[in-house]
Protein backbone atom coordinates (compact mmCIF):
# COMPACT_ATOMS: atom_id res chain seq x y z
CA UNK A 1 0.00 0.00 0.00
CA UNK A 2 1.39 3.38 -1.05
CA UNK A 3 -0.45 5.55 1.45
CA UNK A 4 -0.89 3.47 4.57
CA UNK A 5 -2.65 5.79 6.97
CA UNK A 6 -4.35 9.16 7.23
CA UNK A 7 -4.82 10.61 10.68
CA UNK A 8 -6.98 13.63 11.45
CA UNK A 9 -5.05 16.00 13.69
CA UNK A 10 -7.20 19.11 13.82
CA UNK A 11 -10.93 19.84 13.56
CA UNK A 12 -12.80 23.12 13.90
CA UNK A 13 -16.04 24.65 12.62
CA UNK A 14 -15.91 26.18 9.14
CA UNK A 15 -15.69 29.94 9.39
CA UNK A 16 -18.37 30.63 6.81
CA UNK A 17 -20.66 27.77 7.79
CA UNK A 18 -20.26 26.77 11.45
CA UNK A 19 -22.54 23.79 10.91
CA UNK A 20 -19.82 22.23 8.82
CA UNK A 21 -16.25 21.42 9.81
CA UNK A 22 -12.77 21.97 8.47
CA UNK A 23 -9.85 19.78 9.33
CA UNK A 24 -6.24 18.86 8.83
CA UNK A 25 -4.88 15.36 8.55
CA UNK A 26 -1.41 13.84 8.49
CA UNK A 27 -0.42 11.38 5.79
CA UNK A 28 1.77 8.44 6.78
CA UNK A 29 3.65 8.61 3.46
CA UNK A 30 4.84 11.32 1.08
CA UNK A 31 2.38 11.50 -1.83
CA UNK A 32 4.34 14.00 -3.98
CA UNK A 33 5.04 11.30 -6.54
CA UNK A 34 1.38 10.54 -7.18
CA UNK A 35 0.20 14.15 -7.56
CA UNK A 36 0.90 14.52 -11.33
CA UNK A 37 -1.02 11.29 -11.89
CA UNK A 38 -3.95 12.57 -9.84
CA UNK A 39 -3.74 15.81 -11.80
CA UNK A 40 -4.08 13.79 -14.97
CA UNK A 41 -7.07 11.75 -13.82
CA UNK A 42 -9.09 13.79 -11.34
CA UNK A 43 -11.62 16.01 -13.01
CA UNK A 44 -11.24 19.71 -12.14
CA UNK A 45 -8.16 19.21 -9.97
CA UNK A 46 -5.93 22.26 -9.50
CA UNK A 47 -2.29 21.26 -9.41
CA UNK A 48 0.74 23.28 -8.49
CA UNK A 49 3.82 21.23 -9.29
CA UNK A 50 6.26 23.71 -7.76
CA UNK A 51 4.59 23.89 -4.35
CA UNK A 52 3.63 20.99 -4.63
CA UNK A 53 -0.09 20.79 -3.85
CA UNK A 54 -3.26 19.60 -5.49
CA UNK A 55 -6.79 20.82 -4.82
CA UNK A 56 -9.83 18.74 -5.64
CA UNK A 57 -13.44 18.56 -4.58
CA UNK A 58 -15.76 15.80 -3.48
CA UNK A 59 -19.26 17.16 -4.04
CA UNK A 60 -19.36 20.28 -1.84
CA UNK A 61 -16.19 19.51 0.11
CA UNK A 62 -12.86 20.97 -0.92
CA UNK A 63 -9.64 19.10 -0.28
CA UNK A 64 -6.08 20.25 -0.71
CA UNK A 65 -3.36 17.64 -0.75
CA UNK A 66 0.22 18.42 0.32
CA UNK A 67 3.11 15.94 0.41
CA UNK A 68 2.45 14.78 4.00
CA UNK A 69 -0.78 16.55 4.86
CA UNK A 70 -4.27 17.33 3.65
CA UNK A 71 -6.85 19.94 4.52
CA UNK A 72 -10.57 19.64 4.01
CA UNK A 73 -13.31 22.21 4.37
CA UNK A 74 -17.09 21.99 4.43
CA UNK A 75 -17.27 18.41 5.67
CA UNK A 76 -20.63 17.66 7.31
CA UNK A 77 -19.19 16.09 10.45
CA UNK A 78 -16.29 13.84 11.39
CA UNK A 79 -18.04 10.71 10.08
CA UNK A 80 -18.43 12.46 6.75
CA UNK A 81 -14.79 13.57 6.88
CA UNK A 82 -13.55 10.04 7.60
CA UNK A 83 -15.61 8.71 4.70
CA UNK A 84 -14.09 11.27 2.35
CA UNK A 85 -10.61 10.48 3.68
CA UNK A 86 -11.26 6.80 3.00
CA UNK A 87 -12.31 7.64 -0.54
CA UNK A 88 -9.19 9.78 -0.98
CA UNK A 89 -6.87 7.12 0.36
CA UNK A 90 -8.37 4.63 -2.04
CA UNK A 91 -8.09 7.12 -4.89
CA UNK A 92 -4.44 7.83 -4.13
CA UNK A 93 -3.51 4.18 -3.74
CA UNK A 94 -5.43 3.16 -6.83
CA UNK A 95 -3.86 5.96 -8.89
CA UNK A 96 -0.40 5.00 -7.66
CA UNK A 97 -1.01 1.34 -8.53
CA UNK A 98 -2.10 2.33 -12.06
CA UNK A 99 0.60 4.96 -12.64
CA UNK A 100 2.26 2.99 -15.44
CA UNK A 101 -0.99 3.32 -17.42
CA UNK A 102 -1.36 7.09 -16.82
CA UNK A 103 0.54 9.91 -18.48
CA UNK A 104 1.48 12.30 -15.64
CA UNK A 105 0.32 15.88 -16.04
CA UNK A 106 2.67 18.49 -14.57
CA UNK A 107 0.72 21.50 -15.82
CA UNK A 108 0.00 24.06 -13.16
CA UNK A 109 -3.63 24.90 -13.79
CA UNK A 110 -6.83 23.49 -14.99
CA UNK A 111 -9.67 25.69 -16.09
CA UNK A 112 -12.46 25.31 -13.52
CA UNK A 113 -16.11 24.76 -14.41
CA UNK A 114 -18.56 27.63 -13.66
CA UNK A 115 -20.47 25.40 -11.22
CA UNK A 116 -17.22 24.73 -9.40
CA UNK A 117 -16.76 28.48 -9.04
CA UNK A 118 -20.35 28.81 -7.89
CA UNK A 119 -19.93 26.14 -5.22
CA UNK A 120 -17.28 28.24 -3.50
CA UNK A 121 -19.10 31.57 -3.65
CA UNK A 122 -20.99 32.73 -0.53
CA UNK A 123 -24.24 32.13 -2.45
CA UNK A 124 -26.08 34.88 -0.60
CA UNK A 125 -27.61 36.33 -3.79
CA UNK A 126 -26.99 39.77 -2.28
CA UNK A 127 -26.71 41.40 -5.75
CA UNK A 128 -23.90 43.66 -4.54
CA UNK A 129 -21.84 42.58 -7.55
CA UNK A 130 -24.60 43.86 -9.83
CA UNK A 131 -25.81 40.42 -10.88
CA UNK A 132 -29.21 38.94 -10.07
CA UNK A 133 -27.74 35.92 -8.32
CA UNK A 134 -24.47 34.16 -7.56
CA UNK A 135 -24.90 31.59 -10.36
CA UNK A 136 -24.95 34.39 -12.92
CA UNK A 137 -21.89 35.91 -11.26
CA UNK A 138 -20.07 32.54 -11.50
CA UNK A 139 -20.93 32.21 -15.21
CA UNK A 140 -19.65 35.72 -15.91
CA UNK A 141 -16.56 35.09 -13.81
CA UNK A 142 -15.87 32.05 -15.95
CA UNK A 143 -16.27 34.00 -19.18
CA UNK A 144 -14.06 36.83 -17.89
CA UNK A 145 -16.91 39.36 -17.71
CA UNK A 146 -16.79 39.60 -13.91
CA UNK A 147 -14.01 39.84 -11.36
CA UNK A 148 -13.74 38.05 -8.05
CA UNK A 149 -13.08 41.29 -6.20
CA UNK A 150 -16.65 42.39 -7.02
CA UNK A 151 -18.02 39.76 -4.66
CA UNK A 152 -18.08 41.84 -1.50
CA UNK A 153 -19.08 39.16 1.06
CA UNK A 154 -16.28 36.91 -0.16
CA UNK A 155 -13.74 39.36 1.16
CA UNK A 156 -15.20 39.43 4.66
CA UNK A 157 -13.54 37.44 7.44
CA UNK A 158 -16.16 34.67 7.38
CA UNK A 159 -15.30 33.53 3.87
CA UNK A 160 -11.54 33.39 4.16
CA UNK A 161 -11.31 29.72 3.19
CA UNK A 162 -13.60 30.02 0.19
CA UNK A 163 -11.76 33.17 -0.87
CA UNK A 164 -8.42 31.37 -0.85
CA UNK A 165 -9.86 28.56 -2.95
CA UNK A 166 -11.51 30.92 -5.42
CA UNK A 167 -8.38 33.03 -5.77
CA UNK A 168 -6.51 29.83 -6.60
CA UNK A 169 -9.22 28.75 -9.06
CA UNK A 170 -9.31 32.23 -10.63
CA UNK A 171 -5.64 31.92 -11.54
CA UNK A 172 -6.64 29.18 -13.93
CA UNK A 173 -9.15 31.46 -15.62
CA UNK A 174 -6.60 33.95 -16.83
Amino acid sequence: MFLRKVEITYVSPCLADPQKIRLKAELSDDITEVMPYLNATVKAAIYNHEAPNLTLSKEFRLITLYPRELTMIKALNTTDAWQVIDWLQELINDTYARRSEIAPDYRRKRRPHPLQLYSWLPRLNCKKCGEQHCLAFAALLFSGQQELKNCEPLFSHNYREQREVLLELAKALR
Partner: peptide, 18 residues
Protein backbone atom coordinates in the same frame (compact mmCIF):
# COMPACT_ATOMS: atom_id res chain seq x y z
CA UNK B 1 -14.51 10.85 24.02
CA UNK B 2 -15.01 10.59 20.28
CA UNK B 3 -15.72 13.88 18.54
CA UNK B 4 -15.33 15.84 21.75
CA UNK B 5 -11.88 17.36 21.46
CA UNK B 6 -9.40 18.90 19.07
CA UNK B 7 -6.51 16.87 20.43
CA UNK B 8 -5.05 13.79 18.85
CA UNK B 9 -6.40 11.22 21.28
CA UNK B 10 -9.98 12.42 20.94
CA UNK B 11 -9.56 12.35 17.19
CA UNK B 12 -8.07 8.88 17.43
CA UNK B 13 -11.14 7.78 19.40
CA UNK B 14 -13.29 9.31 16.69
CA UNK B 15 -11.35 7.36 14.09
CA UNK B 16 -11.95 4.11 15.99
CA UNK B 17 -15.71 4.78 16.08
CA UNK B 18 -15.61 5.40 12.34
Amino acid sequence: SAGRGAYRRALEADGLVF
